[in-house]
């Protein structure tokens, strides 16, 4: 059982008391967990196939070639065709996910031209994009990628930013001075241009993109950490710890960091939001993840190029607004929960 100290418990209670933020947190967490199982929600692979008495769970793992189910091909089974066939003959059962399309699957028939409008009959609840891929499926997978990207970015940015900021505040002196200058220079490098240059030479993958963004993104948090550390290091309890003979690392990790973490946490939701927006922006500009990766930015681009197919731009804008709104509500609530004053008056 996790035991929280009284301050943290109080903050948690306050956070819970702020309904809007609390529910937003629950919804976003639920969405994230659901998106981790996106393969079970939107997929061209069936959830369960019962064929000739055998049970198959094709969702995860290797592809099952069509031959297995009596088709004459060795590539991946078309489960929708299998479902139709088995439903007719009654030889077995196929259970498809709620959205029976994968993010990369092109659903095209001769003589009809994508993008298709939303339709319940076809199973494209939000329609298809210009290549005939399901918009909902791409939104779900795009959400997962954007969020994971953003969380990874956050982790690395904070890892580097907090360490350096903390050391700057703790050691002070020349180290502080040198790093201040480095960071000032660093944060003036126009990172979008760097990405554009890199993207015009090689197509960046997921990890390269994380790498580049961390390379330029870690500076932001250092200032806050530096200030917080300076403040904490001057406190009496740090002096006391030092007097007892605590080592530097003990002071930093056991005393200063936990006490300055509140500054950090208030920034987290906003960093997540900015991570999502920057990936979307890069994808929109064509410097992001390579096609055909499902991505909100790419969908947004298609949407703006095809304003006559309104469902494209509507779905992605709605999804994006929703997620960014949730994140902002959470951020607001956290900030308030960590504020030691219960009431503020603004004039």
């Amino acid at each position: 059982m996790l035991k929280l100290n009284p301050v943290a418990r109080k903050r948690l209670e306050r956070f819970k008391a702020i309904r809007r933020g609390y529910y937003s947190a629950i919804i976003l967490a639920a969405l994230f967990v659901l998106s981790l199982g996106a393969e079970l929600i939107a997929n061209q692979r069936a959830l369960l196939v019962i064929y000739e008495g055998e049970w198959y769970f094709p969702t995860y793992g290797d592809i099952i070639p069509g031959e297995t189910f009596g088709f004459d091909y060795r590539y991946e089974t078309d489960y929708k065709a299998l479902k139709a066939r088995l439903a007719e003959s009654g030889e077995g059962v196929v259970i498809m996910p709620p959205v029976p399309y994968g993010p990369l699957e092109t659903d095209l028939a001769v003589g009809d031209f994508p993008p298709h409008a939303p339709s319940i009959d076809s199973g494209h609840y939000l329609g298809t994009d210009t290549s005939g891929r399901d918009v909902l499926a791409r939104i779900i997978y795009g959400f997962r990628i954007a969020l994971l990207f953003s969380l990874l970015l956050l982790f690395f940015n904070y890892l580097i930013g907090v360490s350096i900021g903390c050391l700057m505040g703790f050691w002070g002196g020349t180290f502080d001075l040198i790093f201040q200058r480095i960071i000032e220079i660093w944060s003036n490098v126009p990172f979008l241009y760097v990405i554009m240059i890199v993207a015009s030479i090689v197509q960046p993958g997921f990890w390269t993109l994380v790498g580049i963004m961390v390379f330029f993104g870690w500076t932001g948090i250092t200032w806050y950490m530096r200030t917080a550390t300076y403040k904490e290091a001057a406190r009496d309890y740090v002096m006391a710890a030092r007097a007892i003979g605590a080592s530097n690392s003990r002071i930093v990790f056991r005393h200063i960091l936990p006490n300055s973490v509140s500054t950090l946490i208030t920034f987290v939701p906003f960093s997540v939001a900015s991570g999502i927006t920057s990936l979307t922006a890069l994808d929109y500009l064509g410097f992001g993840l390579p096609p055909p990766t499902p991505s909100w930015g790419e969908l947004l681009k298609q949407g703006t190029e095809n304003l006559d197919s309104l469902w494209l731009v509507l779905s992605v804008v709605t999804a994006m607004t929703l997620v960014l709104m949730l994140v902002t509500y959470i951020g607001e609530a956290i900030r308030e929960a960590f504020d030691p004053r219960k009431f503020s008056y603004y004039e």
Binding site: Y73, E76, L104, L108, R133, P291, P292
Partner: peptide, 15 residues
Amino acid sequence: SDRLVIIQREALKAG
């Protein structure tokens, strides 16, 4: 892109 996505999906059938 939309042309290539189709070609890509179809080529996958041949491995």
